[in-house]
């Protein structure tokens, strides 16, 4: 479904991505982890063309993300993305945030969009918060609205970039629960996260990055059993301490 082939990216002299290759099959959940600055966000943003890359190829469902004739907006509309800082639009209510792309990108009529929005808000346990604005919601609620906003597009895959790392501990679970639910339904997911409990529970594979390179790409069991690389071992022991 999502395939990266020898993707490299430079910022001037600095190599952010170093020959990265990976595949995410339909229905697969892949967790991407690694130290800060290792290029995880950059990698996941290459998957929907938010970050241009210097070399290599990214394809989604066989469509090349980097090709000049690809209609990126149409491609991105099929891939949901959830950000560390939620990125809800502050001047729109929760419902309006979820409606926007349904109306403007998919061209749904207002009634259809609103029905979808209501259904998703209910599913996220946010039915009572439809008319609230982002600044009136807790972090956990905002992130669930953001997930609903992505799901409203009926995506074929979802990308998550550290969806819980801006949240207070007591709100992390409510967001992770939603993500576990999605994984159980068979959603194709790429998740940048340090939540190893989540990885153990739902990930099929874990990808470990360091200094822009994919150091390890293993099944979840193999990764948590004995990571092959020393750097992954160090990373895991640090992260599992707390």
């Amino acid at each position: 479904m999502i395939e990266l082939k020898n993707v490299s990216k430079w910022y001037g002299e600095f190599r952010v991505l170093d020959d990265c290759s990976m595949r995410i099959a339909k229905g697969e959940v892949v967790v991407i982890c690694g130290p800060s600055g290792s290029g995880k966000s950059t990698l996941i943003k290459c998957m929907n063309g938010l970050e241009p890359f210097t070399r290599g190829e990214v394809t989604i469902d066989g469509i090349s993300v980097g090709a000049p004739d690809t209609q990126l907006p149409r491609l991105r509309a099929r891939i949901g993305m959830v950000f560390q800082n939620f990125e809800l639009f502050p001047h729109m209510s929760a419902a309006a945030n979820i409606n926007l792309a349904q109306l403007k990108v998919l061209g749904r009529d207002r009634a259809t969009a609103q029905a979808k929005t209501d259904e998703l808000l209910a599913r996220m346990g946010l039915a009572d918060h439809a008319t609230k604005f982002p600044a009136q919601l807790s972090g956990g609620q905002q992130q669930r609205v953001a997930i609903a906003r992505a799901l409203a597009m009926d995506p074929i895959a979802m990308l998550f970039d550290e969806p819980t790392s801006a949240l207070d501990p007591e709100m992390i679970t409510e967001v992770l629960d939603v993500m576990v639910g999605l994984a159980d339904e068979g959603m194709t997911m790429a998740v940048v996260t340090h939540e190893m409990g989540f990885a153990r529970k739902v990930a099929h594979r874990v990808v470990f990055m360091d200094e822009g390179a994919i150091i390890e790409d293993a099944s979840t069991a193999a990764f948590f059993g004995t990571p092959r690389s020393e750097r992954a071992q160090q990373f895991l022991s640090k992260i599992l301490q707390h």
């Binding site: 943003k45 509309a77 800082n85 502050p90 926007l100 990108v105």
Partner: peptide, 24 residues
């Protein structure tokens, strides 16, 4: 990130200006 969020949901850059960035 707001610009990215708009693009990620399939809005064109012009639509991101129109619905997301300019109103704020």
């Amino acid at each position: 990130g707001q610009h990215h969020a708009g693009l990620a949901m399939g809005l064109t850059p012009a639509q991101v200006y129109r619905y997301v960035r300019l109103p704020v």
